[in-house]
Amino acid sequence: MLSTDTDILSAAQSWRRDGRAVALATVIETWGSAPRPVGSHLAVDGDGNFLGSVSGGCVEGAVITEALEVIEAGTPRVLEFGVADETAWRAGLSCGGRIRVFVERVD
């Protein structure tokens, strides 16, 4: 695991300690030339501030939107991004890869 990913977990913890709503997104599966490896994290707070990366910028916007919904609902969800889902998600991975991202709220 990259040290930057572990720093993100520390940040998520300190955000939560400060009373901020926090969601954590984690890359759980990749196919093809996915830009970020399995285990990469993105932390999002209730205001949409974020730290880390699940795709090197390609789909972060969509992940953050979903993360805000997860913060509201409290139920984790699995997102899938890739060329095949471009029309559904409007945010495809231009590199031709596909990724699955698990998004959960930090309670």
Binding site: L9, A12, Q13, R16, R17, L24, E104, R105, V106, D107
Partner: peptide, 8 residues
């Protein structure tokens, strides 16, 4: 994720 698990 529970905060205590994240902290651990």
């Amino acid at each position: 994720m529970r905060s205590d698990i994240l902290a651990a």
